[in-house]
Amino acid sequence: MIRDMLVSIISGTIFGAGLALGGMTDPARVRGFLDIFGDWDPTLALVMGGAVIVMALAWLMQRRMLRPVFGEGFALPDRSDITLRLVGGSALFGIGWGIAGLCPGPGFAAFAIAPASAAIFVAAMLAGMLLVRLMEGKA
């Protein structure tokens, strides 16, 4: 439990630092990347590329491990079915991402940059998540 928390706060802090350094916490930079038909800013492609390459190496290491360093086993997604829900949800997410130039990680990281804006975005995001849960009757 304590080790879970330690791993999480270390991961979260490095993650937040990476988001800020890479420009993900700057909505103009994010929207500039999404503006491929206009004044395109390729920076985020490098953020994504750098993250994916490092993480691909981590997956190679993971395959050789019986269990994580701290913890009993790996708890990883194993689905491979492409559903309307996956595509529709992702389509919606992209629209929201494009509107304000914020996705969930930078939304939280922005509490260190523009707390009022971050609070509004995160509160609305959590409300949206709760709405899905309520509509699915899992409440």
Binding site: S90, L92, F93, G96, I99, G128, L131, V132
Partner: peptide, 12 residues
């Protein structure tokens, strides 16, 4: 944007 991101990320 927040609402749409919240709904979209749960569904997706």
């Amino acid at each position: 944007a927040g609402l749409i991101v919240g709904i979209g990320t749960r569904l997706g």
